[in-house]
Structures are given as structure tokens and as C-alpha cells.
Simulated assay, not measured.
Amino acid sequence: MLHWIIPSTSKLSDFIECYWFIEKNTGAGDNFPKLNPDPCAHLIFAPCSEPYSYGYAKQQELGQGSHLLLAHQNTFDLDHSKSFTHLGVKFKVGVPYMMSLTTSEEGQLDVVKQIDTNKLMSVNAAALSEFFCIG
């Protein structure tokens, strides 16, 4: 497993806590880790065919590709049984609610919202897959 975290030191540091990366191959490390509650939201970039799964109590947030993990008060059970590559941006508390990343209907806890990278920053799926070296 490869991972790193870099604090934001640019002009964006008023909005961004840090940038992070994690890559896991099948069979390496814990396949079902827990994600502790976090008041910060994370924008997670991933290849469009890559599944994600966040579960707590009897709730399950499932999807594929890039997504926005909003602030959460529950501990999530993650499914890391398959290989994955994630590049993340951890926002400071409240930032996604100030931006157009969420709407008032979505402005709640424990929500995962699928993100269309084409609309977000004009990056198409092929370019994102190329960035992650996925064929």
C-alpha cells in the first residue's frame, strides 16, 4: 500500500486542509478498515469504473468513480477488498457548503455524493484514467 498526505501551504490553505493519496493492491493491508468521524469533507478523485463503499449501521453509500464525502458523524466501514487508487482533497470545516459542491438538500451529515469530473473541472474520464495509469 502506498499513501501520503501533504498539508496545503498555498493561497488555497484558507479552504484546503491537505491533499492525500492512497493506492492499495488486492490482498495488501486491511480489506475492511474503519473511517473515523470527521467534520471535514473530502473530494476524492478515482477512475470512473472504480467502486466505493461506505457503510454504517444499516446504511450503505455505494457508487463508482470520483465522489465527495461530506462531514460524517458515524464511523464508516470501508470495503477495500479490491485494488484502488484515490487522490483526495481534504477541505476545512464548512468549505463545501460555501462552494457549489453541495446544495441545501445535500447539506447533511454522512452523505457521499458522486462527482462528475467533466462538470467539476473539465477533466474527462480518459484523462483521469491516464493520470492514474489505468488502462
Rank of each mutant, 00 (worst) to 15 (best):
H3F: 15
W4L: 15
I6S: 14
S8V: 15
T9C: 06
T9Y: 14
S10T: 15
K11T: 09
L12V: 15
D14A: 13
F15I: 08
F15S: 03
F15D: 03
C18P: 01
W20G: 08
I22A: 02
E23P: 06
E23K: 11
K24F: 00
K24E: 06
N25D: 06
N25M: 08
T26C: 07
T26G: 13
A28T: 06
A28N: 09
A28V: 13
G29M: 01
D30Y: 01
N31F: 14
N31D: 10
K34W: 03
L35P: 00
D38E: 09
P39Y: 00
A41F: 01
I44A: 07
I44W: 00
A46S: 11
A46I: 02
P47V: 06
E50F: 03
E50K: 10
P51K: 03
S53C: 13
Y54P: 01
K58G: 15
Q59R: 09
E61H: 13
E61R: 04
E61C: 11
L62D: 10
L62R: 13
G63H: 06
Q64D: 10
S66V: 00
H67W: 01
L70P: 01
A71S: 08
H72R: 03
N74F: 12
D79C: 14
D79S: 03
S81L: 03
S83A: 14
T85E: 04
H86T: 07
H86V: 01
L87Y: 00
G88F: 00
G88Y: 02
V89R: 06
K90E: 06
V93F: 12
G94Q: 15
V95R: 03
M99R: 07
S100L: 08
L101C: 05
L101S: 01
T102I: 08
T102D: 02
S104E: 13
S104L: 12
G107N: 09
V111M: 05
V112G: 00
Q114K: 12
D116G: 15
D116I: 14
T117Y: 01
T117W: 03
T117I: 14
N118E: 09
K119A: 09
S122Q: 14
V123F: 07
N124V: 04
A127L: 13
A127C: 11
E130Y: 04
E130C: 12
E130V: 06
E130M: 09
F131A: 08
F131E: 10
F132A: 02
C133G: 02
I134N: 01
